[in-house]
Write a protein that binds this DNA or RNA. Structure first.
Lengths: 346, 346
DNA sequence: ATGAAAGCGCTAACAG
DNA sequence: CTGTTAGCGCTTTCAT
């Protein structure tokens, strides 16, 4: 059997024209006789031709591929890297990012290559991958404040767009959410429903999202006469949220409203409350953040601040596409608005 | 500034040898004077050379890339495709697959391209992608019984390995779990802890995993004197598990043990039980399946049948690698053993 | 052991 | 509007 894939040459012969003409038709370049276009298309059909991407890349210098990178900061061992990957994907957040990116790429004949950059070596690999043209650009989701990758990408002048503003300024485009506004939405909702002593299980304070959500929450409360806010810090995971809630409750037994900086932690908060015999929302109202799948999986379903992750990820991919095509050259930031989703928890 | 990436030519000039020699050194081919090897390596260092993957692919006919495909069966609209992607990634299961695959690929200079194949067009794209050599093979996770992709892959004689045995026989390698054994583990545990009236929220009966888990559960119970098993079918999602549990409870109010065919459904089962005022495990014991993140997120934490997804995914990648390299030619199946993980729910 | 040379399949000037 | 031609950067015989 003939595993030989047909080439341009074959199609050209079949259609009785030159390679160049076939190439023009394939790439949709005008200035080709409609008649010939037709016969070429038929020849393509007959031969089952599909352009060889490597050959095309070699001359166009485009890989039609982008790297979707989840990067950390550490220098992890093999096992830690596996654990990192596992943890990352256990968080429903990343699935939404992937989904948004794929949504944009679909039909654009661009494909995402998944990469993890948790170690020095992995970061170098990512750089090499991009520099050798295996991918045209990078979409990066950092999980740590001191992730060196964005800086490396910028220094190498490689097209890259970040999800969320980096902790340290870097001349790269990014998409982000108006975290402060989101936190304010949560604060106002808690106050409006009558909570008098509200606290928060905030996120890690070394990442902007964690900081901003806390700052926004405090601001909003201060503006409405609550200068002091009980706070316990978590790490954006369910377990850390539960642990933080235990501390919060121990120090401030009277809280009647809690804002958790993401849904996973809010779920942990609800579990702790349940174990303490406190009802949600009757005894303590809980507001989450993200509107991830954890929000609906939680009992009771979470009132939460929706972050349009899919749209943000899609916009991120679009920004990158523009940078790659060269239609956008300056670093740009796109900040999305959050939205309150009211369910049963508050 | 010089964005021009150095080529083999540059390195050769720098080292004072021919391109061929540099190529040999880079690709670790013996028969090169150790002395020259050294000077070449230094030249590579100095120039910061990284081989151009497209050029290499063009001649080796290897992309060093594999497609990681999540495929369905339908012919969905754009929005449905987005929803599909979102749903797929909301399931912690896929994250574990990705994690296992990445774990195997790491350090092997192979990279996974993420693809979704929910529509006719998407499937054709996948085929074209592989046939034009953009990827050397495919890892496919089907979500539906009548997914045509495996058959297409086999017919095109493209290297491919499946996660889970396909519903309809296809001459492709796959990795799978001994589902029946897993279900038996669950049944025995429930019986051993004293449950007398056990039922099950089973998975979709058109996919082998759903069927096998139910069959195994029934067999085990029958063998221990329980010929009749209350059953309600779910769709492997939390909501469907909850709905199934409601039906099960309505028809068989006396159940004191439930086996849910995956953790997500088990979580739904626990929620329903909680809402009915039934305690887990005191009134009704619950056993899940998978040992996914849902198992620990659940209250109480789930006793469950562990499926070593990461190891399975890693093995799947290894099988594919062997098929690609040609060291394995016959379709092969690798079946892993499940393991009972006892937590609080049963 | 090393180099010269011939492509891999495609696009993009450049002619015509 | 179409064909000819010259590479893209690399690997791989084939000589030497």
């Amino acid at each position: 059997m003939n595993r030989q894939v047909p080439t341009l040459e074959d199609v050209a012969r079949e259609a009785g024209v030159s390679r160049a003409t076939v190439s023009r038709v394939i790439n949709g370049i005008r200035n080709v006789d409609p008649h010939i276009q037709d016969s070429v298309r038929r020849a393509v059909e007959r031969t089952g031709y599909a352009p060889n991407r490597a050959a095309r890349s070699l001359v166009t210098r485009r890989a039609e591929t982008i790297a979707l990178i989840v990067s950390g900061a550490g220098d992890a061992s093999e096992e830690e890297q596996d654990a990192f990957a596992a943890r990352v994907f256990a968080d429903p957040f990343f699935g939404r990012v992937v989904s948004g990116v794929v949504g944009f790429l679909r039909g654009r004949s661009m494909h995402p290559v998944l990469m993890f950059a948790e170690t020095e070596a992995a970061r170098d690999q990512v750089l090499a991958y991009l520099r050798q043209g295996s991918a045209d650009g990078a979409l990066v989701v950092s999980t740590h404040a001191d992730d060196p990758l964005p800086g490396m990408l910028a220094a190498a002048r490689l097209p890259a767009v970040l999800f969320a503003r980096p902790a340290h300024p870097v001349p790269l485009s990014y998409v982000d959410l108006a975290h402060r506004d989101g936190a304010r939405l949560a604060a106002d909702h808690l106050l409006d429903r009558g909570c008098r002593r509200v606290g928060t299980v905030c996120g890690p304070q070394d990442v902007p999202a964690g900081r901003e959500r806390l700052a926004g929450f405090r601001d909003a409360l201060a503006r409405r006469g609550h200068p002091h806010v009980p706070v316990a810090e978590g790490g954006f995971t369910l377990a850390s949220g539960a642990a933080a809630m235990i501390r919060l409750l121990d120090e401030h037994p009277g809280v009647d409203g809690v804002f958790a900086a993401n849904d996973l932690m809010a779920q942990g908060v609800c579990q702790v409350l349940g174990e303490r015999g406190l009802r949600v929302p009757e005894d303590v109202a809980v507001v989450g953040f993200d509107d991830s799948s954890a929000a609906t999986a939680c009992r009771p379903p979470l009132t939460t601040v929706r972050q349009p992750v899919e749209r943000m990820a899609s916009a991120m991919a679009e920004l990158l596409d523009e940078h790659i095509r060269g239609v956008r050259t300056e670093p740009t930031s796109l900040v999305f608005d959050p939205e309150l989703v009211v369910r049963a928890s508050a």
